[in-house]
Nucleic acid binder design. Structure first.
Lengths: 137, 137
DNA sequence: TATTTAATGCAACACTGTTGCAAAGTTTAA
DNA sequence: TTAAACTTTGCAACAGTGTTGCATTAAATA
């Protein structure tokens, strides 16, 4: 994805495309997997944790990324599809590889809707499957 | 559950029933919900974090409790059923109430088995549904 | 260009999870 | 029953994560 495309994407989501935001978002897209704040920090050594943190938050607030808590100890962020509104119907299973620590969106596996007992309201869901991924097996 | 029963339970799982362990396990059982290390610390002000931590670990290692990462920032522990081996077939959905922060085992909702793409190995899974529980609605 | 607004970097902080080590307690074996 | 061996507990410290207030810099607007 080119920088121009990234910038357009950010603008279309009402996020001003600053240099840092463009860079962070591009990194997420190009990596093809979910990245944590720490992962990103390592890639941009000169950039402040808080700056990356706030970039991620602005993406999250504007439905550009979704947080994935895969149990690794730090939340990872995965880019949303274009039409994602991060609600129940957009949710998919995430796979966490316990060998390499990579987290992948399993877009082909939507989270099944569950019939909750009376009185419970469904707002969001996380479905993480852990195991070993093909490249580690 | 009486102390005697707790002690027997611990022994049957090869965990020596010290005073602390009995207390911690009893608290988990009596609460009827999943508790975090911090939750337990509050209840036993005089007891060291690390002691409770290690008690929980020994329960976990011996399949007496299962950890639930509900996204609240701290892992909670829920007591297992007698016959639980904490493998895929014992897993159930957990419900996290975003109002009161309570986490409940939904034993009536087993985690559906998902057909993973070729090459992926299924080891364990977490399925957390967040929303509002009946007492908060 | 001057002024207002937004983004960044810095520093600090609370909290969670975790460990090494010493003290206290318990078990075992002589 | 006493000493030796082992286990559990408390204490202190630490790293990592997430988060915020504030000053500085950069960008947008009038």
């Amino acid at each position: 994805m080119t920088n121009k495309e990234i910038e357009k994407k950010l603008e279309s989501k009402n996020v001003k495309p600053t240099a840092m935001r463009t860079l962070v978002y591009k990194t997420l897209v190009d990596s093809g997997k979910a990245l944590s704040l720490a992962d990103l920090e390592i890639q941009f050594e000169k950039v402040e944790r808080s700056t990356i943190f706030r970039a991620l938050k602005s993406f999250e607030d504007n439905f550009m990324v979704h947080p994935v808590d895969d149990g690794s100890g730090s939340v990872k962020y995965a880019v949303c599809d274009d039409d994602c509104t991060c609600n129940i119907h957009d949710l998919h299973v995430h796979f966490y590889c316990t060998r390499c620590g990579r987290t992948r969106c399993m877009k082909e596996l939507p989270i099944p809707e569950m019939k909750l007992p009376a009185g419970y309201t469904y707002r969001k869901a996380q479905f993480i499957i852990s195991g070993v991924c093909p490249r580690c097996d």
